[in-house]
Design a protein around this nucleic acid. Sequence first.
DNA 1: ACCTGAACACCGTTCAAGT
DNA 2: ACCTGAACACCGTTCAAGT
Lengths: 225, 225
Amino acid sequence: MDSSSRPRSTRDRPAKAPLSAEAIIDAALAILKSDGLDAVSMRRVAAALDTGAGSLYVYVTGREGLQEAMFDRIIATIELETPDPSRWRAQLHSLLGRLRDALVAHPGIAAATMVDPPRTEVVLGLLENLLGLLLASGLEPQRAAWAADILAAQVSYAAIEAELRRTDPTALAAQVTANFARLPADRFPLITAHAEQLVAGGVDERFRFAVDVVIDGVLATTSAR
Amino acid sequence: MDSSSRPRSTRDRPAKAPLSAEAIIDAALAILKSDGLDAVSMRRVAAALDTGAGSLYVYVTGREGLQEAMFDRIIATIELETPDPSRWRAQLHSLLGRLRDALVAHPGIAAATMVDPPRTEVVLGLLENLLGLLLASGLEPQRAAWAADILAAQVSYAAIEAELRRTDPTALAAQVTANFARLPADRFPLITAHAEQLVAGGVDERFRFAVDVVIDGVLATTSAR
DNA sequence: ACCTGAACACCGTTCAAGT
DNA sequence: ACCTGAACACCGTTCAAGT
């Protein structure tokens, strides 16, 4: 009855659900959002749920499985639009932008899981939508399929880059430009000459350009297939 | 004198250099090549050098610094060709292919360091060469600079993908195709219809296509700049 | 049936003590 | 001056013991 005498407990919170896969993933995502993936240890997730790390293994296969579950939940928040052949390009930019933003909001998850994502229904739903948009452009299936992969690489890379620059993007860019310009011009003539171009543009502008490059490239290329 | 009585020592090897940044990086690279980045712990590197983990901190700033040093050494092995305007495209494919292969030979290093590489002279030398090849195509500097970044994303992604598929690429591809084809066609009509295209092509063919797409795209795109 | 928490085999990093 | 290795504060995962 005397809850104040209970040691180091947080039981007086609004009646939390006891333990479940959902609750574990929720707790893990909260830590991921605020402190990044490295901070999401089994022990810390368990501590947030007032239990021991070992207890999590009933609901989750381990750290890796938990990360896949987190990734799935993040992807599940991304809204999908039915492909419209009259505006597939805008839809594509919008979809990939939402994906990138969702990844950036959860620092570390792109680097850890994006290249080899779990093939859950949610993740496959995203691929289905992406493929639909690419096919709406008139691309034949093989080029559309490969383009999906190329775009995934760009999203993943852009997300990780944006995470790095999240504290103060412009200050960091200015610093890099200065460093590039200060290099010996005889050994790095192109980098010193084009220091500004190398750093130019915000994350959004560069990402938009990259997506357009891939789209235009896959429409234009005369390579093998 | 009686070396056989010395406990758990490997001193009878051909007179190894005692301890230095070089020796530490060598030992770390050997472990990286055979067992991947996760196995490259300060303790294991130290053990390979017959010392304690603490001793490494005189020559190396820490685990992160060691990884950057390893990355630098890996990049240093990549041969650079002077850009030739008559065959810049072939040179570009060749350079990026060598980079990707060097990364794949050191599992985990691409994922860990490629997006935010150390700006050492060696790494900048690679960027200088890449930029030279792109400018040799006739691209204006801004597009060349951004293209370098887009290509870096493709190399990084391709390397990580190749690492995953390194054990038995064709068996894995067949399995993924089967999984895709077995999905409910009403919910995933495009994935099931194009399961083969999604998995088609070896790592090399897909990478070659991706690089051509980026080149052709950056030459063709009518985006912002 | 479910949860706990101790135990095992690891980490990176620091630093007093030795040679 | 340089190296050692103990210590600190962590890891992921397993599993006997409790309720």
